[in-house]
């Protein structure tokens, strides 16, 4: 067992508790290092891990786009502090103020940094805003539990602008906005027409196993097919490294969800329980994807009861 502060605290429950409960040291600031991937486009690569205190929740990729009208961000990170740091780093990089922040989908590692920006410049799909209003407080509670001081000052904020159209022009730099779904009920992908760069949000995982807490795998496949048909050059995935081919992240994400779908169905049909299903062998060709075991076990939790209800026959006699 790994010894952590939590372990120590739990062990103290029966003893008189003299140590202050919030003894975890204040977090240092986030290190945000943008890497250029195309003309006027930088990617900030998140940690290939789950949300944890050690990474401050900075696990999602963030994109910075320099436009004649100002700086555009795609996603904002996990906390107010991240968003503030991101704003500073992005504006120093481009020399222009942030004029637009897109939130690709409802998950907290992508959208809880928006408190650092004026709500009217933060834009998301209607389904994303609805999802954030519904689940945001619950996400926030979980993030505070996991991240503690990293989250200080972060309140649930909602995007102030609903995306209606399918493109936006920033002084001549045009961004196509694709309203898709599958990773969640509303997933935004952004295509920079000037450089041919696709920013896929969490529809794309690259060298990193896809996460499925709100997934609809059939719709996800349709969205991947739509992205595959775009004719873009490079792709920035939601998690994992930049994909210079523009195709590899799409293929990997599709391969993983196809395998997952089949493997979980076969596990239920074969009589496995959830623990066993979470320990099944991950095929050789998918083992290069980071966090594979972690995401498989999460996916078992997301899908298994539903699959059992669909696949196992009724046996009650009333």
């Amino acid at each position: 067992m790994r010894v952590s502060r939590r372990t120590t605290l739990a062990g103290l429950v029966a003893a008189p508790l003299v140590a202050p409960v919030m003894s975890r040291a204040a977090a240092p600031d986030y290190t945000i290092t943008p890497t250029p991937v195309a003309d006027g486009i930088w990617m900030i690569t998140g940690a290939d891990e789950g949300i944890a205190f050690d990474n401050g929740g900075a696990i999602a990729n963030i994109t910075v786009i320099a436009t004649p009208a100002g700086t555009v961000l795609v996603d904002s990170g996990p906390s107010l502090r991240y968003g503030q740091r991101l704003k500073h780093v992005a504006e120093s990089l481009t020399g222009r103020s942030v004029v637009r922040v897109y939130v690709t989908h409802l998950h907290p590692d992508h959208g809880m940094g928006i408190g650092a920006f004026a709500p009217e410049i933060v834009a998301a799909l209607p389904g994303t805003i609805a999802g954030m209003s519904r689940d945001g407080q619950g996400f926030s509670d979980q993030m505070y539990r996991l991240l503690g001081d990293w989250m200080r000052g972060t309140d649930l904020a909602l995007p102030g602008k609903t995306i209606g159209g399918d493109e936006e022009d920033f002084g001549g730099r045009r961004l196509r906005l694709l309203a898709l779904s599958g990773h969640s009920a509303a997933d935004l992908a952004v295509l920079d027409e000037q450089s041919g760069t696709l920013i896929g949000g969490d529809l794309l995982f690259h060298d990193r196993a896809p996460a499925t807490p709100t997934a609809d795998l059939a719709r996800w496949r349709q969205s991947l097919a739509a992205l595959d048909a775009l004719g873009h050059k490079g792709a920035i995935p939601g998690h994992g490294p930049y994909d210079g081919t523009g195709r590899q992240a799409i293929a990997q994400t599709r391969a993983w969800i196809d395998w997952l779908d089949t493997a979980l169905t076969e596990a239920v049909r074969g009589g496995m329980d959830m623990v066993e299903a979470g320990r099944m062998v991950i095929p050789e060709q998918l083992r290069n994807m980071a966090s594979g075991r972690y995401e498989l076990q999460r996916s078992v939790s997301h899908f298994y009861p539903m699959l059992e209800a669909k696949l196992l026959p009724r046996v009650d006699q009333s």
């Binding site: 329980d273 959830m274 623990v275 979470g278 075991r293 972690y294 076990q297 078992v300 939790s301 997301h302």
Partner: peptide, 16 residues
């Protein structure tokens, strides 16, 4: 006693 490495859902945690 087998269980997943994480409790993704605290309402439904598998144990074998």
């Amino acid at each position: 006693l087998s269980m997943p490495d994480l409790a993704e859902n605290q309402h439904c945690f598998p144990v074998a």
